[in-house]
Computed example of a mutant assay.
Amino acid sequence: MRLITWNINSLRLRLPLLARLVEEHAPDIVCLQETKVPDNLFPEDAIRSLGFTHRVYRGMKGYNGVAILSRRPIQPLDHAPDWCGRTDSRHVACAIEADGGPVILHDFYVPAGGDEPDPALNDKYAHKLAFVDETTAWFRNHPPQRSILVGDLNIAPLENDVWSHKQLLGVISHTPPETTRLEAWCANGFVDVMRKTVPASEKLYTWWSYRNRDWKASNRGRRLDHVWMTPDLLPQYRGMQVLRDMRDWASPSDHVGVIADIDI
């Protein structure tokens, strides 16, 4: 099974890029974040034409939104809480039919957190920390098995997940209150499989700001997009790829896709 996770930054705007992604990399499942489309306007026909006959999504107008698109049969799941009680379309989950029993797939879009890394002064940062605290507690109380968690988690936890650990320690997405929380969340039953493929000693990014005119030359990236798996699936994990070339596509997202291949 080939799975791709991608913050598309507007599904309707970038439908042609999604079609190109599907044509070039033939995923069985695509997990999207920041779809920015309410459920009643979700482009069902266009998605079906790409071969994804099974879909589960949750969206709203103008921002947020998550979707799982699948060629395989899936069963939508709605057993997790409405995180922070906001009903803001940041999580969707399903069960994938597979040999050995279903595999649970979570697709998350964690709040970005704004600009000021002080929860007393910045409600967006306070919300982000509370969101990760709540997800961490939930997975602690519901230990995952045969599970995959992907998405734009908006945190680059390791030193080599950012272009400059020293300069970004005070910048939201790499502050210690965020990184320690994300590592605690992952430790509740998951393994960071991207770092099983690319060692933590090496730089690894999935996002480059629109503010950088030549993103490739400056290469001031961050790894904000993640793929986690439970240990019971690791023997079936076959590797991953960060699709850097997507950042050079016409009218790109500031995120690129991440492929994960797994035998299920």
Results as ranks from 00 to 15, higher is better:
M1N: 08
M1P: 14
I4V: 13
I4L: 12
S10N: 13
L15V: 10
P16I: 07
V22N: 12
E24I: 03
P27R: 09
P27F: 12
V30R: 04
D39T: 03
P43R: 00
E44C: 07
E44Y: 12
A46M: 08
A46I: 02
L50C: 07
L50S: 09
V56Q: 02
V56L: 01
V56R: 02
Y57P: 02
R58T: 03
G59E: 03
G59Q: 06
M60F: 00
K61R: 15
Y63I: 00
G65D: 07
A67S: 14
S70P: 13
P73C: 07
Q75I: 12
P76A: 12
H79N: 15
H79R: 13
W83T: 03
T87C: 14
A93T: 10
A95Y: 01
I96M: 14
V103M: 08
F108A: 02
G114N: 08
P119V: 08
A120D: 12
D123V: 10
K128E: 08
A130M: 10
E134K: 08
F139S: 00
R140G: 12
Q145S: 13
N154K: 11
A156K: 09
P157I: 02
S164D: 14
S164F: 09
H165R: 08
K166R: 15
K166T: 11
K166E: 14
K166P: 00
L182Q: 10
F190S: 04
V191Y: 08
M194T: 01
M194A: 07
K196S: 13
P199V: 01
E202Q: 15
K203E: 15
Y205K: 07
T206D: 07
W207H: 15
N212D: 14
R223V: 01
P231S: 09
L234Q: 12
Q236V: 03
A250S: 14
A250T: 14
S251C: 11
S251K: 15
D261P: 02
